[in-house]
Design a binder for these strands. Structure first.
Length: 482
RNA sequence: GCCCUCAUGGUCUAGGGGUUAGGACACCACUCUUUCAAGGUGGGGACAUGGGUUCAAUUCCCAUUGGGGGCGCCA
């Protein structure tokens, strides 16, 4: 039988990386086994769910490349169905009305915490006499499931047999007084109705599973297979949250992370192929994936490793593709068609220095505009030399002359990697100094920086006109420095 | 407080009764180089603790400690 899985996000926020992690495992398993992957939006909390968030979640899933075969289904469309099943449980005596107000319950809970006692519903409404129930009939009421005595256990795909005593589980609300259903009820009904065979979800749901097993029993349904994978933690080993940085998939997109890198990174957080391979595409992951290679320990989200991996993916992209990705960023400068070729060259020269797409904006500025300031360490090292102004003038003159020397027909032809390099090296030789003593100040003058790609390549790319202009500007700056 | 669960370097992990405990990120050094990256080479660093079982335990069992999760008319 082909497996049927699902991802069931709640649209009360953006797509969390933890949800993406779970979605990925479900997706990989389903693709590998050629089953069906369903998207179900769990929006039963009508006060906090928004359709805007549903859209964002759907968009994020698409961006990651995790396509679903069926859905999205919205649980808010099915409240009458859930109500029908809740009534069924009522009839069977497996559930009962609860008239307690949230305030009342909260007060009891606080009291229990204060007294360090177990905070479990006291079954007040279950124990009401028929007379008392009659009086309350028209009051707002929720429906609670009655937990029978005994033990519950199930076989988890990762944890093997897990067991829990009924005494430790409270009668939980399956249907709220506002006419909406509650998580465990709608989840069980939908998993059953959709024919879900494998529930692969985070370990935070492990305890819910006991409640859900009771529900399956009460309905007389066969429960699916459960696999509760470990969670992703922040660097301080607490639950991954906003204070650890970005937690939404869209944030990573905005920050210049490639979806293939994020997916690859997430896959390796709690799963490994068994060998030493780490850079794995979605199709390779699918090929290698297996549920029994899932680990059992929670893992820390290490942004540095993600960045490294992203850099690997960036380097594997063609210049053309990389440029497209950079241009898709909202803050990127849009090239005119004329300078697309130029952009491609800049991308090529900067590629190995990028870990995020957004790095391009940070390190490419001087390819598009003259530097407005010079790095102070560079000024100290390279500009505060007595002969510096004279040297920059000399090299500027050499560059200007390049258009005249040789038998070249056009100035640009004579201004290339080879002639640029020899102009600089020859001048250094004539001055009796090391080439580095020219190269560093020139770099600073042209880029405002002390580091970057090969200077000769930069000069060639910038073109003679820009180079000469910037050298002149640097001279002005040097005059003011004195 | 009660319940569930986990434990290999700083981080992600492989492994498994006998291994020089393997790889990756990060870190350090060297190398390449006009610089910064990238690349290459090398290096330091781990089986939480205590009891068992066994000829042998990091691996199996138990306890402790530590971590994570849950205990909502949230999902």
């Amino acid at each position: 039988m082909k497996p049927i899985t699902r991802i069931a996000p709640s649209p009360t926020g953006f797509l969390h990386v933890g949800t993406a992690h779970t979605a990925l495992y479900n997706w990989l398993f389903t693709r590998k086994e050629r089953g069906k992957f369903i998207l179900r939006i769990e929006d039963t909390d009508i006060k906090r769910s928004t359709s805007a968030m549903s859209d964002v979640i759907i968009e994020s899933l698409k961006w990651l490349g995790l396509k679903w075969d069926e859905g999205p289904y919205f649980q808010s469309d099915k409240f009458p169905v859930y109500k029908k099943y809740a009534d069924l449980l009522l009839e069977k005596g497996a559930a009962y009305f609860c008239y307690c107000t949230p305030e009342e319950l909260a007060a009891k809970k606080n009291e229990a915490i204060l007294q360090k006692k177990t905070r479990k519903y006291d079954r007040k409404c279950f124990n009401l006499s028929d007379d008392e129930k009659k009086k309350l009939e028209n009051k707002n009421k929720a429906i609670r499931f009655f937990i029978p005595d005994g033990k519950v256990s199930f076989e988890d795909g990762i944890h093997k047999r897990v067991e829990r005593n009924s005494d430790d589980i409270e009668d939980f609300v399956i249907f709220k007084s506002d006419g909406t259903s509650s998580y465990n009820l709608s989840c069980v009904i939908d998993d059953h109705e959709l024919g879900v065979t494998h529930v692969i979800r985070g370990e935070d749901h492990l305890v819910n599973t006991f409640k859900q097993i009771f529900l399956y029993r009460a309905f007389g349904w066969e429960p699916p297979k459960f696999v509760h994978h470990p969670m992703i933690l922040g660097t301080d080993r607490s639950k991954l949250s906003k204070r650890h940085g970005a937690v939404s998939v869209l944030d990573y997109k905005k920050q210049g992370i490639l979806p293939e890198a994020l997916v690859n990174f997430l896959a390796l957080l709690g799963w490994s192929p068994g060998d030493d391979r780490e850079i794995l595409s979605l199709s390779e992951l699918t090929e290698l994936f297996s549920l029994d290679r899932l680990g059992r320990t929670a893992s820390v989200f290490d942004i540095e490793k993600l960045e490294w991996m992203n850099g690997e993916y960036i380097n594997k992209l063609s210049d053309e593709e990389l440029l497209n990705r950079i241009l898709s960023l909202p803050e990127s400068r849009q090239p005119t068609t004329e300078n697309r070729e130029y952009m491609l060259k800049v991308v090529n020269i900067l590629k190995s220095r990028m870990q995020r797409l957004t790095d391009f904006m940070k390190i490419s500025d001087y390819f598009f505009e003259d530097p407005t300031q010079y790095e102070s360490v560079g000024v100290e090292k390279s500009f505060k030399i007595p002969e510096i102004n004279q040297r920059l003038t000399l090299i500027k003159d050499r560059f200007s002359e390049l258009s005249r020397v040789g038998g070249h027909s056009s100035p640009e032809e004579s201004f290339n990697l080879e002639t640029i390099e020899s102009a600089i090296r020859e001048l250094a030789g004539e001055l009796g100094i090391k080439a580095a003593l020219l190269i560093h100040p020139i770099r600073l003058a042209l880029t405002g920086r002390t580091g970057g790609p090969s200077l000769f390549h930069i000069i060639e790319l910038l073109g003679r006109e820009t180079v000469v202009r910037r050298l002149e500007k640097a001279s002005l700056f040097l005059n003011e420095l004195k």
